[in-house]
Design a protein around this nucleic acid. Sequence first.
DNA 1: ATAATAGGTAACCTATTGGTTACATATGAA
DNA 2: TTCATATGTAACCAATAGGTTACCTATTAT
Lengths: 105, 105
Amino acid sequence: MDKVFQALSSAPRRAILDIVRDRPGSSVGHVCKFFDVSRIAVMKHLNVLEEAGLLISEKQGRTRRLYFNSAPIQMIHERWTSEYSALWAGHLTEFKRQVEAKQGT
Amino acid sequence: MDKVFQALSSAPRRAILDIVRDRPGSSVGHVCKFFDVSRIAVMKHLNVLEEAGLLISEKQGRTRRLYFNSAPIQMIHERWTSEYSALWAGHLTEFKRQVEAKQGT
DNA sequence: ATAATAGGTAACCTATTGGTTACATATGAA
DNA sequence: TTCATATGTAACCAATAGGTTACCTATTAT
């Protein structure tokens, strides 16, 4: 879970996810076209995403084809929507009011 | 958005959110009881969470009272469920199959 | 066989993170 | 007023992140 959030915490990496989601099977080179940094820097981002399970890659000849994997995001979504179910709905204000009586240490 | 994901990428910080959610109005000292690291380390986590908007703090006398704020998580949830709507539902396999014909560069 | 292409690895640098200790400040209690 | 409590700040340190250049490997095309 740490790795997923960590991976998602960078705008370039989220952009990579968009690129691959919009064009599954993208090569490393294709992804690089969208960025100004070196290919190596992009590859590091790709590895972070892959280690988080957000990208899957499959080597085809000399090119590495990339696929977006939504499973980790789904997992987090499910876990958090159940655990924080009341909160997703947006009841902070009420929540605070409830508490201002209790006043925990 | 970066800051929110960054803040959520650490298990201790997520634990802090749980603690404060379960006992809104918690003091810094109360949160510290749950961890083995120094108070300063905990305070740094609190500041990261606060800068991400996930915690709100209000000073009451000499104690700082902490409140969980679900707004950033809601924002992300809404944005991602719309943007990745097909994916939340878990259609990666189909997604991949669709694409294996196209085969983008 | 040779050259061009696509990708991977290694070594290095700087900035950020996450922890520490020591000290400072402000408020509540005796 | 004096002491204890609750929090905040500063300076430091090791590990990680994110970038670079230089070089290596494997596959495709001529």
